[in-house]
Design a protein around this nucleic acid. Structure first.
Length: 909
RNA sequence: GGGCGGAUAGCUCAGCUGGUCAGAGCGCCUGGUUUACACCCAGGAGGUCGCGGGUUCGAUCCCUGCUCCGCCCACCA
């Protein structure tokens, strides 16, 4: 199933190694490599390929400008796509971009404003051209940036949510929902953005804390008997009041229910109603009801059949002639507030005021304060759509990773309200709703003349006549769809839906979706709902929620704060491999990450380290017979590194499969640097120097090459560039690691690991460290070899007494084990049941009994601790027997060490 | 108002199912012209694991309260 290096005799490897630059310079090669891959068609997915399929739909970036670090997290998608290709799957990563109606219109309008003009001045046609130009320019720009990160998406299938086929899919989806009765038009209170002159959905409201004033206003009763004092932060909306509400359980006000209050300044009469939604202990417990300008009041109004009045218009002006007195009319609601308050004060209706901090809704695109008002809008009924979408998550057909998001999703879905899908923008998908005016010409201002239509119908195709009366006086609804409506059908619309294409058949449902938590409700939920509705299938099985990258101070990165980091700048500085490895490391499972450039730098160093490991091995590889899978052989270092390598393959594979990419990339890093480079290769160097035909050398080089070959493949999904470059130089390597082939390039599982050997080697390494320390204390020169005797002083690991160990000590610690010291004894090292006595250096310091005394103190403290624990009857009887046994072993070892140290100290004195 | 996550070395973070788990990288200090790499090698210093309780023979790890930070949801005007 998987490929290894084929058996062959190496020739030319050292020559190639000689040409390898000493330093890996990603900036010089990555772009060229990428172009080669792309030209070779490596990223293209073939729906007719018989191998198992795997697919990911790329969350389409907004075509509003440049990349941010969230896009670097897309590396997680590339990781899985490349990994699946390497394990024998035909994998599709389908890329695309989103028109982002409201966001893009905002950006372009700002541009126009800076040019001293506006979209109204330009006119609709010229504006559309401007938009098209924008998409042309920035759509390509975004794609180029994504490519620079090495993303292996199938660019031949690039989709844009405004492309003609996609537009048709959007219309199809809308028409189906409309014909099923799930989309309807009606007056409801909406979040109105006066600047964008459009409604926005609840999810697009950005709540910000404001310091306002709470005004207490006296509403006298119409019959002159008593009064109710209400509290409000928006006194100006009182002009549209149509009632006063109190809680029916509130004894203070019970007797007011059913009576009539008189609206100050205006004099209109208002019924007093009882409604349990009124909080008794907020303000005075009495509430003015303004159904036209407050969502909660709207619902109270609905329950009590109160009139809905509008005092504020869609520009945020308070100019309504019917409800606003002349002297209060103003172009600005805040000015209106001042005037209302002034008048209330003059007429002694203002009881008092107090400072009040609360949250005020803002448009999350332009920042304008949201004006709740009642308007005719298009709605999508959610309950029928939500139910199955809840069930698939409850049943685990769709799971979120980390799994805590399952609950977030379910909580939100269970409380869904109908979705306002229409927007009053110029940019976006026009609703495929048409009005027929029978024999009357279609009115010019359709927005206000919809009601005059004789017939209303939805149509996927542009209709030329009314299907009911064949009339030709028809006009399309001027509203556009919420951007999320169109992106909500992304996973299947990009594959050709509603047509039953080969792609849809082959790659749908997709496997993994990777996205940001802030759009779980906005986007993920809607994809699940539409997919179940239109395809009867879930759109994806696993939803990865990657981390939000904060700035180094823990603040959210945002354009307005100017604290964003440009991923491409990081690519320029450290290479795409480093940025990618970083993204995989921090992206999952963590959910909040402070940006730390040092971590990217660490991975750029790692790329260089790996490059040099390959250089070293290759420059020693001439004339070696490479074995496909070298046997562990007889050399303990070979056995050890191969055991560790087999463990690594298993661990990395499991970590990737278990969506723990961070664990995977760190394991590869540790193995390569700490074990392969620092221990194995250092120990193998003498064998590298042997004659080319020497079997010991052949074996060492084979093992080293095998390690490099495996590491490079394990790392490829994370760091494709440096790994491919090395792979191309390896004997038996070469050829794209993600190419389709009959054999998969992912390393197959190896043999079981050898834990006893790994333990022995760990003990050896510890001994080497101790001896290095001792050399330092003695002031021995770096290169100077020191003689030492070694004897068992307890239950030593037999391996440490072997010839192999002695050779390793000579090589790695420059300590030569002898029968008898030629001169005076120097430092004594006691560890792991061994006593090593080093000879005193010719011109160095002699042994320092103080060092041994310090060590002795530590050992004694340790013994005391262990004895105390074992002396505790509860511990011995209740603790896990295994733990007790281990503690006894520790105590035995410590006592052995104390004895050995005592002896050593007495001899030194 | 409800919910979630975080608080471990100067900095950024690992620490799985409680008992060698107190770690890594960077920074700092010492020493290094080795068949790769100074983007390197060998070492060192540095932490009451946010605070208070509790469970347990034993807690960084479990429970609870508190403080601080971040985030999500919410129609208390």
């Amino acid at each position: 199933m998987a490929a290894d290096i084929p058996e062959s005799s190496i020739s030319g490897a050292p020559a190639r190694a000689a040409e390898m630059p000493k330093t890996w310079r990603p900036q010089e090669v990555e772009e060229g490599m990428y172009q080669e891959w792309e030209a070779a068609g490596l990223f293209h997915a073939d729906p007719t390929d018989p191998r198992p399929h795997f697919s990911v739909a790329m969350p389409p970036p907004n075509v509003t400008g440049e990349l941010h670090l969230g896009h670097a997290e897309y590396t997680l998608q590339d990781l899985y796509v490349r990994y699946k290709r390497m394990t024998g799957h035909e994998a599709l990563w389908l890329p695309g971009t989103d028109h982002a109606a409201i966001a893009t219109q905002n950006v372009i309008e700002k541009q126009l404003a800076s040019e001293g003009t506006s979209k109204e001045e330009l006119g609709r046609a010229a504006f559309d051209q401007r938009v098209a130009r924008w998409y042309e320019e920035y759509g390509g720009y975004i794609v180029r940036q994504l490519k620079r990160l090495g993303f292996s998406a199938d660019w031949s299938r690039l989709r844009f949510t405004m492309d003609e086929p996609y537009v048709r899919a959007v219309r199809e989806a809308f028409v189906r929902l409309y014909n099923d009765g799930l989309i309807y038009r009606g007056p409801r209170i909406v979040n109105w953005c006066p600047r964008d002159r459009s409604s926005i959905s609840d999810l697009e409201v950005d709540w910000q804390e404001h310091e306002d004033t709470l005004y207490y206003i006296r509403y006298d009763m119409a019959d002159g008997e008593g009064a109710l004092v209400i509290a409000t932060v928006r006194p100006e909306t009182m002009l549209a009041d149509t009632g006063v509400a109190v809680n029916p359980n509130d004894p203070r006000y019970r007797e007011f229910i059913g009576r009539t209050a008189r609206l100050p300044l205006v004099g209109r009469t208002l019924p007093v109603v009882g409604d349990e939604s009124v909080t008794m202990d907020f303000g005075t417990g009495a509430l003015k009801v303004t159904p036209g300008h407050d969502p909660m009041d709207y619902e109270i109004g609905q329950r009590h059949s109160l009139e809905v009045l509008s005092a504020i218009d869609k520009d945020g002006n308070m100019v309504n002639e019917e409800w606003v007195p002349d002297e209060l009319r103003t172009r600005d609601a805040l000015t209106a507030r001042d005037r209302v308050v002034e008048m209330l004060r003059d007429r002694e209706h203002l009881v008092r005021t107090e400072a009040y901090v609360h949250e005020v809704g803002h448009c999350d695109r332009c920042g304008e304060i949201i004006q709740p008002l009642v308007d005719d809008q298009w709605w999508c009924a959610m309950s029928d759509l939500a139910r199955p979408a809840i069930e698939v998550v409850e049943r685990g057909e769709v799971t979120f990773i980390p799994d805590k998001w399952n609950r977030t999703y379910l909580d939100w879905m269970r409380g869904l309200r109908d979705w306002n899908v229409s927007r009053q923008l110029w940019l976006g998908h026009r609703l495929p709703i048409y009005y027929c005016f029978a024999d009357q010409p279609a009115p010019h201002d359709l927005a206000s003349a919809r009601e005059a239509a004789t017939h209303v119908f939805a149509s996927v195709e542009e209709p030329s006549a009314c299907p009911e009366c064949a009339g030709r006086n028809i006009a399309q609804d001027p509203d556009v769809l919420d951007t999320w409506f169109s992106s909500g059908i992304w996973p299947f619309a990009t594959l050709g839906w509603p047509d039953q294409t080969a792609e849809l058949d082959a790659f749908y449902p997709t496997d993994v979706l990777d996205t940001a938590r802030e759009i779980i409700n906005l986007w993920v939920a809607r994809m699940i709902m539409t997919s179940l509705r239109f395809t009867g299938k879930v759109p994806f099985h696993h939803v990865l929620i990657h981390a939000v990258i904060q700035d180094p101070q823990g603040q959210r990165m945002s354009k307005s704060k100017g604290n964003g980091v440009d991923p491409l700048q990081m690519v320029e500085r450290y290479g795409a491999d480093a940025v990618r490895a970083w993204a995989c490391d921090v992206g999952l499972p963590r959910q909040d990450v402070r940006f730390d450039e040092r971590l990217i730098e660490e991975y750029s160093k790692f790329a260089n380290k790996l490059w040099n490991v390959a250089r070293l091995v290759l420059m020693n590889a001439d004339g070696v017979d490479v074995q496909a899978h070298p046997a562990r052989g007889s050399d303990p270092f070979d056995q050890w590194i191969l055991s560790r390598l087999d463990g690594l393959v298993a661990g990395v594979t499991a970590a990737i499969d278990g969506y723990r990419p961070s664990e995977a990339v760190r394991a590869i890093y540790e193995f390569t640097w700490k074990e392969l480079a620092d221990w194995y290769l250092e120990a193998a160097k003498p064998r590298f120097r042997l004659d080319a035909a020497d079997p010991a050398r052949q074996q060492a080089v084979s093992v080293a090459l095998h390690c490099v070959s495996v590491v490079v493949r394990l790392l490829h999904p994370f760091m494709p560039f440096v790994t491919q470059a090395i792979w191309d130089l390896l004997p038996g390597g070469g050829g794209a690691l993600i190419a389709r082939s009959t054999t998969a390039s992912w390393p197959p599982p190896g043999e079981p690991t050898d834990p006893p050997l790994e333990t022995s080697m760990a003990a050896l390494f510890e001994l080497v460290r101790r001896l290095r320390d001792a050399r330092k204390e003695l002031g021995v020169g770096e290169r100077e070899h020191v003689p030492a005797t070694l004897r068992q002083a307890g239950t030593a690991d037999p391996f440490l007494l072997s010839v192999h160990a002695a050779e390793a000590l000579a090589l790695l610690a420059r300590v030569d084990i002898v029968e008898e010291l030629p001169g005076e004894p120097g430092r004594v090292v006691v560890t792991d049941g061994l006593e090593v006595v080093m000879g005193a250096p010719a011109a160095g310091r002699s042994s320092d009994p103080g060092v041994l005394a310090t060590e002795m103190a530590a050992v004694k403290a340790n013994i005391e601790r262990l004895e105390q624990r074992l002396g505790n009857a509860d511990f011995v009887s209740k603790a896990n027997p295994e733990v007790v046994r281990r503690t006894r072993d520790q105590l035995d070892a410590a006592q052995e060490k104390r004895a050995a140290l005592e002896e050593a100290i007495s001899r030194a004195e």
